[in-house]
Design a protein around this nucleic acid. Structure first.
Lengths: 212, 212
DNA sequence: GTAAGAAATGCAACCGAGTAACAAATCTTC
DNA sequence: GAAGATTTGTTACTCGGTTGCATTTCTTAC
């Protein structure tokens, strides 16, 4: 009942999903570079040009899963309660995602999620594409920061925005790495929380007090 | 008189240089995506496989110029005088590069340098490759940081290292942008210095005092 | 219901980056 | 000089991604 769920729209969604599912399962089974788009298209029973009408590149076949989170940090900042600083809102949001075991935080020991992160982190072209997405996200976040002083995003806004992205990425990767090397989930959660506090303290209070 | 400058070595250096020069001049003239490697190989009078024996990818044909600066930040930190904090050493080094109008700082209004930066910043695949180099650099820098406490690079080391890379990249890009939109060099220098101070203050003293 | 128009698909051919195989040419070393 | 190692060019290939065009499939207006 979304809207005008015509037959055409419905089939498009089905096709898109069939392609994405074929891609993800093949990638997880054989690795990103060991699967050709022709193979994916064949398994999804579409032609190669059709596949590329749905996804702009081979990498997007996997990374479209991050599309939901596009611009999330900016929204968190804009929607924060009065009296809460932007960084505090981001910190709280990150702790929430950890508590929910949201895959985006890296804190999920579901084998499929672990394998997914492994693909993303260890395949250079995937990591590069993801970095490009995050750069766009950082721009949006910088603009959210800039609403505080009502102007265009200045240097400090942009720096802090990309630094936040760095923090998020580093924390997620560390957490995934601990889980993938056998650390039990509850302990990984504890360490992830501690790391989150350290990282946001570093952002907020600066490096001086750590002696750098 | 470098070492054993045999004929073979000499010709290799010449060939490598011929390829790189052909590539850069074609890229500057027509844009990265408008030049094929076949075209570059033809102008350098080598075959395509030979070209790829000298450079691993099309992007490296341009980005090999950054190879000299590989690991520079880490060396600066390791070579700092006693009593100087790592961040202070990096800040001083950056101000030096600005004063020297080193292209790596973005502060050069030579048309060829401006065009070069334009290529790097505005061609997605070049920016992505450069980001990968900088990630490697950040790892080296994190290890340099870690020598302070004698252990392996911890979370704070790695965060600060990548944040420094962010700062460097952002500052260089801003400076290039000002120059390319017509700001005179002396004024661009002044603003670059001010931005450098702000950025390193943000790193060192934290975001708290800026009200984030 | 049906016909006209729009949208999605498949097919075949193509482009460009990058690689493999192998033979020919070139440098080194003894 | 000859033997051995390196470098090179040629040809042909794989793979990601695109283009043109004819065909199918859905929508919409009558």
């Amino acid at each position: 009942m979304n809207q005008a769920a015509g037959l055409r729209t419905l089939k498009k969604e089905r096709t898109r999903r069939a392609i994405a599912d074929a891609a993800v399962s093949l990638f997880l089974a054989k690795g990103f570079d060991q699967v050709s788009v022709a193979e994916i298209a064949a398994r999804a029973e579409v032609s190669k040009p059709t596949l590329f009408r749905y996804f702009a590149s081979k990498e997007e076949l996997l990374l479209h899963r991050f599309a939901d989170h596009q611009g999330e940090a900016g929204r968190v900042v804009l929607a924060r309660p009065e009296g809460v600083t932007p960084l505090a809102a981001l910190r709280a949001h990150h702790l929430e995602r950890l508590a929910a075991h949201d895959p985006v935080s890296g804190l999920s020991d579901a084998p499929e999620v672990l394998a997914f992160h492994r693909l993303v982190f260890e395949t250079p072209s995937l990591a590069a594409h993801l970095a490009a997405y995050q750069a766009a996200d950082a721009t949006a976040l910088a603009e959210a920061f800039a609403t505080r002083h009502g102007g265009a995003a200045g240097l400090a806004d942009r720096l802090l925005a990309t630094q936040y992205q760095t923090v998020r990425q580093t924390l997620a990767r560390d957490t995934w790495h601990r889980l993938t090397t056998g650390l039990p989930l509850p302990e990984a959660h504890r360490q992830a929380v501690a790391d989150t506090e350290l990282a946001f303290d570093l952002l907020a209070d600066g490096a001086a007090r750590l002696g750098y």
